[in-house]
Amino acid sequence: MIKLLHVEDDADIREIAKMALEISGDFEVMQCVSGQDALDAAEAFAPDVMVLDMMMPGMTGKETLTRLREVAALKDVPAIFMTARAQHAELEELRAMGAADVISKPFDPMSLGDQIKAAMANPA
């Protein structure tokens, strides 16, 4: 079972992603509504992979990842960003930060699990 931490402020996207990932039977999903929520819960959950929304109020996905990387137990956990604004320059910046992949919104719920597993197996 792959332990996945999903950080997303949009309730509809959280619901769709959770359903899509759990139906495969490959993922145990913990969802957080904000970067701060993720910081509070991530270390205890000990995820195998983190999926972070880029645009969130309070703390962006990039800021959240930077803070999560300060936790020794999370510094090497693969991180995948989800964004509706997948510009080439931004993709390069996210990969330079250590993102394993960037998934564009809207995403395909049927292939989401496979995209995440592929990113874990072949980090960018």
Rank of each mutant, 00 (worst) to 15 (best):
D76K: 10
M82P: 01
A100F: 04
A86V: 01
R85L: 07
P57Q: 15
K75Y: 02
M97K: 01
M50D: 04
S104T: 12
K75G: 02
D101I: 09
T60C: 03
E90T: 11
I103M: 06
T60I: 04
F27K: 11
A44L: 08
L65F: 15
M54K: 04
D37H: 14
E92F: 09
G25K: 12
L52M: 12
L74G: 03
D40W: 03
A42K: 02
M50F: 10
L68P: 01
M30L: 13
M82C: 09
R85W: 04
L74V: 02
Q36M: 11
D40H: 05
L74N: 05
L74D: 07
G61I: 07
I80D: 06
A38M: 10
E92L: 15
P106I: 09
G58K: 10
G61D: 13
E28V: 12
A41M: 03
K105F: 01
P106G: 10
L21P: 03
E93Q: 15
D48H: 04
G25M: 08
A41N: 10
L74R: 05
V102Y: 06
A44C: 03
M97I: 05
A41H: 09
T60E: 03
I23E: 12
V71T: 05
E92R: 10
K62F: 05
M55L: 12
D37E: 13
T66Q: 15
F107R: 12
L74W: 02
M82L: 13
V33Y: 06
V49Y: 07
V51E: 08
I80H: 07
E43H: 09
S104Q: 12
Q36A: 14
M50H: 02
V71R: 13
M59V: 05
A46I: 02
V29I: 14
A44P: 00
K62Q: 15
P106E: 15
T83V: 05
E43F: 05
R95C: 07
P106N: 09
M97C: 07
